[in-house]
Design a protein around this nucleic acid. Structure first.
Lengths: 219, 219, 219, 219
DNA sequence: AATGAATGAGCCTTCATTCAT
DNA sequence: CATGAATGAAGGCTCATTCAT
């Protein structure tokens, strides 16, 4: 009870750690196999617990998935919002930073699998689609749109249709993760995310900067 | 065909049409519900045959799916290759034409559902991924890359990393169909394919044309 | 193939016979174990088919149960209605006949188990309760009430509250089947349906006939 | 209770009350949902304790149920036995009193739910059936039979088969509670316990009193 | 060639019971 | 005494695939 600093709070850690352990296992398997094909029994086993234990922490498969999204994607959006709001430099640099940040925290991590998965399976699970739409897509879209509006207002980007351009800017990143998790393993080498993003940024900035600032800020 | 009035049983007359009818039904349902959620019984019923008949023409669900891909996507690639090879005008116009053509024959049709589907489920069906990679992705990529090389060689586009730019150019179109078939139904209005493509083309051409041809060819 | 008149229409009989075989098996098991505790796999096994086959003929467990009710109880009601409408003698004899008929066709058969089961489990399965109420209880009640009204109109029974008396007359029969299928197996001997019904009829007729016809019709 | 201001932890103070609280919670839920559908976790929650605590007081679900029966039904039988033994008036009045008393203490209370429950689920839980048979049915039956024998011996009822008549007299009361807890909620209005019991008593007494005492005692 | 009845493995979810703390 | 996290068996339902006719 009052042993020295040997502390073996094994029992306590269990309960608090379980949700995270389960979410980690679920993330792995959802990314590996998709939503429909992931068996809860496998999630439980990977977390080292029994099937029933899952239901102590998550009401059902869909809620588990939502929790994974809230755990792995939503916080990144929040951070990005803060980061953008605080940015003070040139919008071209902001765009670069946002994309790089997205790649580091989502694109290059397992979370990218969730992004891809939602696009792949949302059609069959409307409730998931709606939750994702509300908590991720809408916020993410607003973020990018705000960035564009700031850039145009400051005269740093030429005037464009911000609504459409927002989507145009997001599209390549989404395709990137989609490739990564579908044909990626088949397309040997061809898929080089860093070069892809650099090329995309190059073209986008070239396409967005006003003609008179052709001397674009270096990458 | 022109036999006397012996009128054979209907089913025999349609022997050759069967596969096409089945493929059409399968296309419809795969697009509507995805691969896993499509029941072969429904495919059969929509084609007006019984479940067992499907197995006379296709070994199993996966083979049926491959056949659908070969039937709905591959031919379009062939036509596009011919069309590009024959083109003689300015590369900006060629790019416009290719994208418009793609939208008319794939993006706006049911075939777009297959494109999305493959990206969604390829991960779970490696064999499918490989077949798609070989018969669709590689050929499509080569086509776009060739177009870029022609444009740069003729001095109509500024020099860029053609390998990456090829992918950058394809990405928005893929995301477009993915959206159309996943969050599309959720995102009310926000998704306007024509405006999206126009904005994308605008940015891409602005980003690709040499600085001195800023007076871009009108759309 | 062209054997003599050995006719082995095994295959055809199968399909037509299946529903009845399944209903018989379901009746057995529902009566033995109740609705909730009956496993569809057991029903299937008892009918000599696999679990999936059940679902070719019945949408789900509740529909199977409804079918059992419609198969084993409802027709008896119909017959009784006809029989009562055609009866021309003294109402005391009619009452005797109805009760005896009920005992022969329901009380003494497996169908009695269904009657008991509905009373036992209706609370947990509202849809079943409603169907039973509509197709059995209401019709049965109307039948008995009509009989009472006839008897009173003809001066063969003394005037009573027909609504309540209808229920009073049905109650002992329902308790009888309930006992039979619950405590019955425990109560050694004590439960003698024939003596019970005779005693009940004796009391009921003694209680229903007008005082001046105390010379009751013999049993 | 009146200890100094040492105020012990709440749970210790209530140690003796626990079983009663648990039984009350169990009674509520068993009546509401039946034996099989009642979850022990709900019982525990309603009693304000944890699931594990239940097992400190009751070995398992069946034992809990038996305890509920012993707590809510058995004592009423005891009281009734005493009350009958002490009665000195006319047997018709005794029968009325017994039935009214039963209605007040069982029929109109939650205990009626237990009576119904046993009839409904005894088949699947033989041990419950036996316990109920021994501690409730047998004693109750003996009680009524004794009453009938007294009535006949005193010439207040006409001679009948007392064994069967005992059951005939109990049957409507059992059906009443069964209805109340099954189809009751479905059958709008039709079920009026007071009118039902009055009608039943009227018929029973009319059927049991000797012909020469036709001037029956008023209700 | 065509049928469609039959199969049976597969998966989500529930809940009585146990036991480490 | 009390807790509540953990277990794991059980069951309804689906659907790709087979095969007797």
């Amino acid at each position: 009870m009052q042993l020295p600093a040997e502390n073996k709070p094994r029992w306590e850690r269990r309960k608090d750690a379980r949700p995270q352990e389960l979410l980690a296992a679920a993330l792995d398997l959802f990314v590996e196999r998709g939503f429909a094909s992931t068996r809860l029994e496998d999630v439980a086993r990977r977390a080292g617990v029994s099937k029933g234990t899952l239901y102590l922490y998550f009401e059902n498969k869909e809620e588990l998935f939502k929790a994974v999204v809230r755990n792995s994607i939503v916080p990144v959006i929040g951070d990005a919002e803060v980061s953008i709001a605080a940015f003070e430099g040139h919008s071209a640099d902001l765009l670069r930073q946002v994309i790089q940040n997205w790649w580091q925290r989502i694109g290059a991590t397992k979370a990218s699998g969730i992004v891809k998965l939602v696009m792949a399976e949302a059609g069959n699970f409307p409730e998931l689609a709606q939750m994702y739409q509300e908590e991720v897509v809408t916020r993410g879209t607003m973020m990018i749109r705000g960035m564009l509006e700031r850039a145009i207002a400051r005269g740093e980007f030429r005037p464009v249709d911000v609504v459409q351009m927002t989507q145009v800017l997001m599209a390549p990143m989404l395709t990137l993760v989609t490739w990564k998790h579908s044909v990626g393993p088949c397309a040997r080498a061809e898929l080089n995310p860093d070069a892809f993003l650099a090329t995309f940024l190059d073209m986008a900035l070239f396409g967005l900067l006003p003609v008179d600032s052709r001397a674009r800020p270096a990458a």
